[in-house]
Write a protein that binds this DNA or RNA. Structure first.
Length: 660
DNA sequence: GTAGGGTTAG
């Protein structure tokens, strides 16, 4: 009601606003925007006419210029309703919602036209988790004196989008009812907005229903629906619809490729990227597509393909924007080429927070904590404010390099120095830092005092430290805490618990936990390794039977393990949690995905060349010791990137010094 | 006017 009353009151100009805009314009006949005069040339008696001001406003002025025009409008004696419309338009297009809203609220009687209401509703719809646009809509339809403003198809398009951003199902349903009654339902834009809204709400049946009922569809309708399925984890469905759609544009491809990346299906993401390049319709990959493709290479450690995309970017003259250079740094670092990553970074004249973060995280996973700290300090010196990911990256670096004091100082001061409130991830990192360095009790104390309730990840970091430093007593105390979590100890905790019981030979407890896991229908992430040979990425899963050469690979693996045992490798079965005989347990670890990948690597590469493998989980103790022996017996350098960091196996030892 | 983006502890 407050706004309505303000709308009904006479428009007045606040004197403060007059004071605010002191500058004036020097008018030229040129088409370009007029230069600003100096205060000495200012002549208050000369006023530009409303037509000139209107023309200037139509030239999409920058904010500083806009303020000057606004000042001129305010000093004028003439009525300036049409200029107010233009001013609101310009303020909205320069993202100055507050000023636009102030002008809108003081709009002269009887009311702003529908167009302006629409613009305001659209601007407010971009604010996430804000009900401002629905409030405005409510005001709009409440007005009936002296004039009634009627919403149109544009109003509903923006309003529906706003419901998606607000995640307000209730409002969405009400609007759907209104639209059905007033007939705008058949409008393409309105219907597209509904498809998208139901996708955002994960109501795929409703989204598909609206889609099916549309008499006319365009690339937006199809892409929105595909995006809905992709975000809902239904990539199979997304693929089917993508196959059926009559015309695809770069966004349709981006939705598919990013969907595969989000789903961990990196090989398919790259397959689609190459299909896109071969597509007859000549849709060019845009920044989103390139970033996603590079991310897929980074996840897979697909060095050749990553290099190929990098060369393609250069060849096609694609500007290395901040996002692309960030993705390139990440890709090179994760493919094991930290030098290339650093070279890209040093070429950036003014690196932003994303560029800094990717190089810092890259150095950290390579175990180069001191370098990561050094770049972090450079970043601070350049007045680039770190974000929460930057802090995670640098803490991770400190953790893997044993830089306890440096890491502690960053963790303890992150809130006061950079206004970053530590999240559970930061606590996880800090506890890992302390635990890894052997400060177990100190780490335990942090867990007990932290303001966020510790989750299973935190306990697992502590337990991992107990394993490294062989502290069984603390381990037992931690298990008590995990057990107290009950159902909140999600799947990761249950796997861990089951592994622990298994290592203590408590098979009845293992069975209990496993049964619980089965009942909840939770599945732990399956172990998966990738190896790229001649530009082709081969994927291996635990106890894989999918690879075409699997029989040969298994035969080779048996031979490798036998030779490795001559080189000092002894099977460690501690982490196998099933109630199996020792022989069966040996078989279970023998089929871990990284072992299959190394067997394939030794089969298909020249003697003496190095082998690169990427694994989605952390390497188990058995695989780690097997790879050390293999590197010695076969005289190969084996580089494994696991979930935590890079391991370079050479002549029987590993660059992580068995701390991972 | 309506659809799309990565870097992240263990």
């Amino acid at each position: 009601m407050h706004v309505i009353s303000r709308l009904k009151s006479k428009c007045s100009v606040a004197p403060l606003e007059l004071l605010e805009f002191r500058a004036c314009l020097c008018f030229s006949s040129a088409n370009t925007f007029p230069a600003i005069s100096t205060p000495t040339t200012k002549d208050p008696t000369v006023h530009p006419n409303p037509e000139t001001l209107s023309q200037l406003l139509n030239q999409r002025p920058l904010l500083s210029q806009l303020k000057q025009i606004h000042a001129q409008v305010l000093t004028h004696p003439f009525s300036h309703v049409s200029l107010t419309d233009s001013l609101i338009h310009c303020y909205l297009s320069t993202n100055n919602l507050t000023t636009a809203r102030a002008l809108f609220d003081r709009y002269p009687l009887p009311s702003p036209p529908t167009l302006l209401w629409n613009l305001m509703i659209r601007a407010c719809s971009k604010l996430h988790n804000s009900a401002e646009s629905t409030n405005l809509f409510h005001l709009m339809i409440s007005l009936n004196h002296p004039i009634r403003v009627v919403p149109d198809k544009y109003t509903f398009t923006f309003l529906i989008t706003s419901c998606s951003h607000q995640l307000s199902k209730v409002h969405g349903q009400i609007v759907h009812g209104m639209v059905t009654r007033n007939g705008y339902r058949s409008n393409l834009y309105v219907a597209n907005s509904f498809v998208n809204m139901y996708c955002v709400f994960r109501e795929m049946d409703d989204a598909h229903k609206v889609f099916n009922e549309m008499s006319e569809r365009d690339v937006f309708s199809w892409t929105s629906l595909i995006c809905g399925y992709a975000k809902n984890g239904e990539m199979g469905r997304a693929c089917e619809i993508f196959g059926e759609m009559p015309l695809r544009n770069e966004v349709s491809w981006a939705v598919m490729i990013s969907g595969f990346v989000a789903d961990g299906r990196y090989i398919e993401a790259l397959k689609y990227f190459h299909e896109m390049l071969c597509d007859d319709h000549k849709v060019k990959p845009n920044e989103a597509v390139i970033v996603c493709a590079l991310s897929a290479c980074a996840h897979l450690g697909a060095s050749d393909q990553g290099n190929w995309i990098h060369a393609w970017i250069d060849k096609n003259g694609i500007l290395q924007s901040s996002n692309i250079s960030t993705a390139l740094i990440d890709m090179h670092a994760k493919c094991g080429r930290i030098d290339s990553a650093s070279r890209i970074f040093t070429k950036i004249s003014e690196p932003d927070v994303l560029n800094f973060t990717s190089i810092i995280s890259g150095l950290s996973i390579h175990g180069l904590g001191k370098d990561a700290l050094c770049v972090f300090n450079q970043m601070l010196a350049a007045n680039v404010k770190p974000n929460e990911v930057t802090i995670l990256g640098v803490l991770n670096g400190c953790s893997h390099s044993g830089l306890v004091e440096e890491g502690s100082s960053i963790f303890c001061n992150m809130e006061s120095l950079w206004e970053i409130v530590p999240k559970i991830e930061h606590y996880g990192c800090y506890i890992d830092l302390l635990g890894r360095a052997g400060y177990l009790e100190r780490a335990f104390k942090v867990v007990k005092c932290m303001p966020i309730e510790p989750d299973i990840v935190i306990w697992r970091a502590l337990l991992s430290a107990c394993r490294i430093h062989r502290d069984a007593d603390l381990g037992e105390r931690i298990i008590v805490h995990i057990e107290q979590m009950g159902g909140r100890g999600h799947i990761g905790g249950e796997v861990l618990l089951s592994n622990l019981h298994a290592s203590l030979g408590k098979w009845d407890r293992v069975a209990q936990v496993r049964k619980l896991m089965g009942e909840r229908k939770n599945e732990s992430t399956p172990g998966c390794s990738w190896i790229e040979v001649n530009g082709v990425v081969h994927e291996f899963r635990v106890a894989d039977r999918l690879h075409t050469q699997i029989v040969e690979i298994r035969y080779k693996l048996n031979e490798i393990l036998k030779r490795a045992s001559l080189g000092g490798y002894v099977v460690t079965t501690m982490q196998v949690s099933f109630d199996l005989s020792e022989e069966e347990k040996e078989q279970a670890v023998a089929w871990h995905s990284e072992k299959l990948a190394i067997a394939f690597g030794l089969m298909s590469t020249e003697p003496g060349t190095s082998i690169r493998i990427v694994k989605n989980l952390r390497t188990c103790e058995d695989c780690h010791s097997a790879l050390k022996a293999v590197s010695k017996v076969y005289g190969r350098v084996i580089i494994v990137r696991d979930r935590s960091r890079f391991h370079t196996f050479k002549e029987g030892s590993c660059s992580c010094n068995d701390f991972w």
